[in-house]
Amino acid sequence: MKAAPFLYVKPKSIDEAVALKERHGASARYLAGGQSLMPVLNFRLDRPDLLIDINGLSELRGVSNSGSGVKIGALTRHAEVAKSEIVKSQLALLSECIPHIAHPAIRSGGTFGGSVALADPAAEWPACCLALDARIVLRSSKGERRVEAKDYFLGLYDTARTENELLIRVEFPAVAAGTKAVALELARRRGDFAIAGVLAQAKKTGVRLENVRVVFFGISDRPVRLSAVEQGIAEGQPMETIHQAIDAGINPDDDIYQSGATKTHLAKVLLGRAVEQLRQ
């Protein structure tokens, strides 16, 4: 369980990092928190020739306000997201997710950008990006481009980010005041990746839920937003109808511990609980 040999470089600027990556292409990897990359290297499931350590790029680190929204730098650690007052007051959904993300040691090392770049289908941050209409900001030698979250997550560990682009930050539009957020997930052990998860957010006016957002994660090859489910909740449709929309919208694969049918069932249970909490 020792990584295959590789070269290591720690650039001092974004330009340098991107230039290196473009020079070495698919045989190089960006190294952020290393919480996902290092195990894969040690298992020799991946064997890049070069690691480009981006931890020296301090401009990629931190949470700040931009106009009416919030920017999270790619190198911001999960633990820093957890502590950020801006996140607490403006992106409640992210705060709700924190307790579900791994363990304190991993939260201190793992980065926001690393999670969004990797796009694990059971990860919380990608699901948040989708739920909150985030824009993913990517950098290459040609400059910056922004990709809407809905166009970014393409499949299992597959995103619209091209091989050499550096994810530099994620921009979240402002969330309407008074919006309630719920993050629920089921993991066999605390801190494990979810076997089923749901993010839900809405504004309660009287008995009605408005601006409903629902994203499922851990049940497909990417986070999944189902507008029929959102509409059903907003319209107060019976749960059976909403369940039909879930059946139509997701078709999880079996894994070693549970079948796809079990995951679908769990997603439904979680959604029911999330809606109940939104209504409270």
Binding site: F43, R188, R189, R190, G191, D192, I256
Partner: peptide, 28 residues
Amino acid sequence: LFEHCIYNENGQLQNGNMADYLVPMPCE
């Protein structure tokens, strides 16, 4: 509740690592 060396019909251990073989942790 957790630990199980799962073999398939070809005698391949399906979960021989600390992510997939579930050892109870303090929270459990």
